[in-house]
């Protein structure tokens, strides 16, 4: 009973928030609604017993991703209204068809896979975080490492793309050139 109430409450809240995100013409409203929707989604993870995933959802999405979006929005002109595409008949028809096909596929999928068995079953007498650690650091160690390398590459790419004067190399230029650039920076600042 409690589970049902929580599910329907958070389902309604999440759908409402994401609906606001895709329909509002104010970028700041979209950002706030998206952050709220992410928090509400973590509630589903807690209901489903995936405590660690819920905590990661809150930390990564509302902590890191939203902060990064807010940082990015400082660069862009977000105060003016966002222009929207004018309604195209073909896009509307295509979207409706795609959504209908997807609903059918999702309803059929559990029927097809009724004989599915657990590949890595839950360990008895261990908390969710402990179980996640057991599986992540044994069966999924290599994907975990690859994901770490991918995050490192993404971090370097983000710094190089967003940073200033990243096309210059201080190690490759001579001392005079480096000093010139340094002086120019000081002149700009003062």
């Amino acid at each position: 009973m409690f589970e049902a109430v929580a599910f329907y409450l958070f389902a309604f809240l999440t759908i409402a928030m994401f609906y606001i995100t895709v329909t509002t013409s104010q970028a700041l409203y979209a950002l706030t609604a998206l952050a709220a929707g992410m928090i509400f989604i973590s509630a589903f993870f807690f209901i489903l017993g995936a405590d660690f995933l819920g905590a990661v959802q809150i930390i990564v999405y509302t902590g890191a991703v939203m902060a990064l979006y807010a940082f990015g929005m400082m660069f862009f002109d977000t105060t003016r209204e966002v222009k929207e595409k004018q309604g195209n008949k073909f896009i509307v028809v295509g979207l409706a068809t795609l959504a209908a096909v997807m609903v059918v596929a999702i309803f059929v999928a559990p029927i097809v896979s009724t004989n599915m068995t657990a590949f890595y079953p839950m360990v008895e007498g261990a908390g969710n975080t402990q179980e996640v650690g057991l599986v992540l650091f044994t069966k999924y160690l290599i994907p975990f490492e690859v994901a770490a390398v991918m995050l490192l590459v993404a971090m370097v790419a983000g710094i190089v793309l967003a940073g200033k004067k990243m096309d210059l190399s201080l190690t490759l230029m001579s001392a005079e050139q480096a000093k010139d650039i340094d002086d120019k920076d000081k002149k700009v600042l003062s």
Partner: peptide, 19 residues
């Protein structure tokens, strides 16, 4: 596990895309 990797991919996609 897949959900974790999806979150990691979302974070890195965002960093590069925003840059």
């Amino acid at each position: 596990m897949f959900a974790f990797f999806v979150i990691a991919i979302a974070a890195s996609e965002l960093a590069v895309g925003l840059g």
